[in-house]
Design a protein around this nucleic acid. Structure first.
Lengths: 187, 187
DNA sequence: GGACCCATGTAAAGGGTTACATGATTTC
DNA sequence: GAAATCATGTAACCCTTTACATGGGTCC
């Protein structure tokens, strides 16, 4: 049982779903491809943490609906009693920043402008998602309270990072331009 | 050449270092164990991106100092021209939040209080680190500009997340307590 | 005496991505 | 006609962690 497995259990405790649906719901908070999720669900079914049922569809491909078992619920409760391990972030831009000084202003600006667009899209996505949530999800006790606070977290982080890119871009724009030539200009 | 390799190259472009030192410097921004870094450095030496030299020490174990080659510098420049891929974060607390509603207030509070301490420590670490940096590192063109803006980014994110935990903890504390018993109390 | 820091490495196992494989329906 | 969405699965490869292995010096 790895962390992602518990995440899938957590989503299934809320409502029975297909692997495809779980993938879409977990994506904004934990990147995982279908090729990782489908085998995990199978293994969890073998371990009696889940039950599976095929549901026929006419317009779309048939789907396999998973539901959590009492044993799965028990494991979830046990997991919730343990402290959460520390978050891990991997960001290529961070490593590129280490050697910003070897590059020119325009290359640097291109990197941060692209990232700025990414954060802007994140802000938009989470603002919309939060806006659509009913008021009862803002209360502890609601089944959607967790999702609500997670979206607020993601929005806050995206805004903070967006401000950071703006700040960096401004510094880059105001930086002294490099010497055009090593020789002094005569006229 | 994976992303971590470029990160190590980026640090080595700044100054020649041992694998152990690279590990310590990259840790705050990209989690990687020594068991991953040492073999990577060896492979990069084979590929002529780095040169290695043993330096004898009397009080401490001997160390292997790596330096970037012109070929390594060329690869770094090429990498800087490519857009940075999107950041990936994996946070167990996020998955636990999905099923907050199956648990009680105290369990939830314990999770967020622990995380709050983590963010507080991060804020302290990055504040100190920024405070110690010389003023010239605040300018694009300085070799430490990248490190300076990264620490500002990390500080901003940690503060945003700290505020978030405080907000969640307050909501939890103010939440209606659960019924003590399913039977009405007589007196 | 035990724990921690310095310093390097290998091996095994687990986590995650990319590619391969299929196929109907809908949208541009 | 091409691309995207829905839907599931396997196989190969790469990335990352944990564990094994060594050994001197310092601090409590």
């Amino acid at each position: 049982m790895n962390t992602l497995s518990y995440g899938l259990l957590a989503l299934l405790a809320r409502k029975r779903s297909s692997g495809y649906d779980l993938m879409l719901r977990i994506q904004p908070f934990w990147q995982a491809k279908h090729s990782q999720i489908y085998p995990l669900l199978s293994r969890m079914e073998e371990q009696q943490l889940l039950t599976a049922e095929w549901v026929k569809q006419t317009d779309k491909p048939d789907k396999k609906i998973y539901a959590i078992t009492p044993l799965g619920e028990q494991r979830l409760h046990e997991w919730m009693q343990m402290p959460a391990s520390e978050p891990v972030t991997r960001d290529e831009l961070v490593l590129k920043a280490f050697c910003l000084w070897i590059t020119d202003k325009d290359t640097a600006l291109a990197l941060f402008r692209k990232r700025s667009i990414f954060y802007q899209e994140q802000i938009h996505y989470f603002e919309q998602a939060i806006h659509k949530m009913p008021d009862e999800s803002h209360q502890f006790g609601s089944q959607d309270f967790g999702l609500y606070i997670l979206r607020q977290k993601a929005l806050g982080t995206a805004r903070s990072n967006m401000e950071w890119t703006t700040w960096v871009i401004d510094m880059l724009k105001n930086a002294a331009p490099p010497e055009v030539s090593s020789e002094p200009q005569h006229h």
